[in-house]
Each structure stands twice: as C-alpha cells, then as structure tokens.
Design a protein around this nucleic acid. Structure first.
Lengths: 131, 131
DNA sequence: TATGAACCTTCCAGCAACTGTAAGGTCAAG
DNA sequence: CTTGACCTTACAGTTGCTGGAAGGTTCATA
C-alpha cells in the first residue's frame, strides 16, 4: 500500500513516516514507480511507534522496543532484561499519569470557583513518586 | 532558593528551568545579586512540568494545564471544559500504556526463544484504541 | 585578604524529532 | 489529454531542549 494509506491506518503523518525511514526505524519496499510500498507488518510497527512516541518514549527507546519484537534471539538475557526495564518505565508512567489524573479531578470537584490557591492541589502536586 | 536547589527538588536541569522561564512558563523572583530566586510554589510548578512533559504533553499543553491552577475564575465553563479535555487525554494515555504493558508482558511470558514472529504480539499491537 | 571551587549570569550554537515548502514525477477519472 | 490527487527528493524552519564560552558571585580555607 502507498504511504497515504499507511498514514491513515497508523495515524502518523506521511512526513513522519518518511522521517522514520530516514532514521532506519522501518524499511518499506519500493514499487516499480518508486513509491514506497507498505506491508501490514510495517503498519503494525507504525501504529506501535505512534503509540510509544505519544507516551513519552524517545525515538531511541522506540528503536529498542521495536528490537524486542524483531530480535532473533528473544530468549537471551539481554533482551529479557531490556524488556523488564521498559516494563518498569511503563509502570512508572502509568503511576504518574494516575497521579496527574487525581490532581486534575480533584481540581474539578473540590476547587470550583471560590476555593483558590492554595487549595490542596499544589500540595498534591509536589508529592508524586520521585521522578 | 537558587536555581540549583530548584533543579534538585524538581528533577529538571537548570538549563531547562531557565528555558521554561524564557518561554514564560514560570516567573521566579530575582535576588539583589541577579540570581533567580525560586519559591516553593515555583518548585511545585516545575515538578508538575517535569511530570507532564515526561508523559508526552507538549509545552503548550503544559501551559494549559498550568493555567488550570492559576486561573482566577476557575468556575468558568471554559476552564472546566479544558480540564475535562485534559482528563480524557490522560485516560487515553493510561489506556495506551496499559496496552503497551500487556504487549511487552506477553512477549516476556509467551514468546521466549523458540516462538517467534509471528507470535500473537504483532496482532495485539495493531488493536489498541484508535489514536 | 586572597585564591579557588562551586555556584550563578547571558548569549549563542547544536541536536532531536519533526513539519512545511518547493519543484517535480505518477496515476486514475472525465 | 488534462486536471487533481497522489507520490518523490531536498532543504529550510520549529520545538524543546542541551552544551559551551565568557564572565560575575559566594563561600571556605590558606
């Protein structure tokens, strides 16, 4: 499929998809006319990249995450350890988002209008797990 | 307190803290010697910024989030609506992280060594909520 | 009191990860 | 056979930092 379809299916702009190719994250085929030709597997990776990037993983971290799927020796301790590290990072992010959510929700429900800073929000803000 | 202390307490590099001042996210006092002087409230905001940025919110989104605390008319519908929008974004991010976590966990537990692509991982990857 | 380490200041350059624009080739429909 | 929506590369601009130079401040110690 053409880059436009890959863009629609992955949610990433064509520009970004070409950029990801430039930096070696994906390697689509080329059709006879020179157009990039994306397989379903490429789209899977693009969707994955979109998700991981929007969640605050750097491109290099995404490269590592992608490697976890592509690694030919998945049983190796290295790969398993990397996966564990990434799992811990994800858990940390989930905790921080949950905290952020509590903070905003508290703001909506408890601090409407009259109650102003310093409502308990800013105290809450300062508590979250160590960054 | 000086920028170094604010850096230690917020987890942000001094460089980044000065940058956030340049773009108007925070406005610390100045001491007589010209040094920036951070109050506890500034540190709260910096910690908040650190967290929100690492979770994939853009600087402009962080500016909006910060405004939710500072807005003088917090009861206004606009502010409430913005908060709701941000809550929905946070929920979406939590869902995506949870999905990502399942994917990696599945990889560790079910796809060790011999089972290789195309194990169910890539199918799972393609399913997550629409981005 | 002076010298040096460890702070702080501004300014400017560079990097990461896109994003926009220009100039042009391809293709399906009318 | 042309119009419009695709696609291509190349290069410039933006965002969000990040590093380095050149210099001022503060404080402990000699």
């Amino acid at each position: 499929m053409n880059i436009g379809d890959a863009s629609d299916l992955s949610g990433l702009p064509s520009k970004t998809i070409r950029y990801y190719e430039d930096i070696g994250l994906i390697r689509p085929d080329r059709a006879n006319n020179g157009y990039r030709d994306y397989a379903a597997d490429d789209v899977h990776k693009l969707r994955f990249l979109h998700r991981a990037r929007s969640l605050g993983f750097s491109v290099e971290e995404c490269r590592q995450l992608l490697a976890l799927y592509e690694d030919k020796s998945r049983a190796s301790g290295d790969v398993r350890e990397l996966t564990m590290t990434k799992l811990a990072q994800i858990d940390q992010k989930i905790r921080e988002l949950t905290q952020l959510r509590h903070t905003l929700e508290h703001l909506v429900h408890s601090c409407h209008g009259t109650e102003r800073p310093d409502c308990p929000i800013l105290e809450e803000l300062s508590e979250g797990a160590a960054l």
